[in-house]
């Protein structure tokens, strides 16, 4: 069974830090960005960035065992 590497896990933690643990830092109305309250803007931004983090984790682990079955 493939176990995720430390690097991949670290990338997976990033969205949790950004969208969950740091809430006190970004839960504000001002500044309005693109017409949205800052907290709403921040979460939408991270919905877009979460796939990037996961894609990075995916690439890290698929290069790590490229010799295993490859069904891309």
């Amino acid at each position: 069974m493939k176990t995720p590497s430390i690097g991949a896990l670290a990338l997976g933690i990033v969205p949790f830090v950004a969208m969950c643990f740091t809430v006190a830092l970004w839960d504000r109305v001002q500044p309005l960005v693109l017409g949205l309250p800052f907290n709403l803007f921040w979460l939408i931004l991270w919905i877009l960035l979460t796939p990037c983090c996961l894609w990075g984790a995916y690439r890290l682990d698929s290069t790590a065992d490229r010799n295993s079955s490859h069904d891309g």
Partner: peptide
């Protein structure tokens, strides 16, 4: 209610692992 926007994305992030 903003928790809803965060939890769905993070549910998929957790499921990845």
């Amino acid at each position: 209610v903003l928790y809803v926007l965060a939890y769905l994305s993070l549910a998929y992030a957790a499921s990845f692992f």
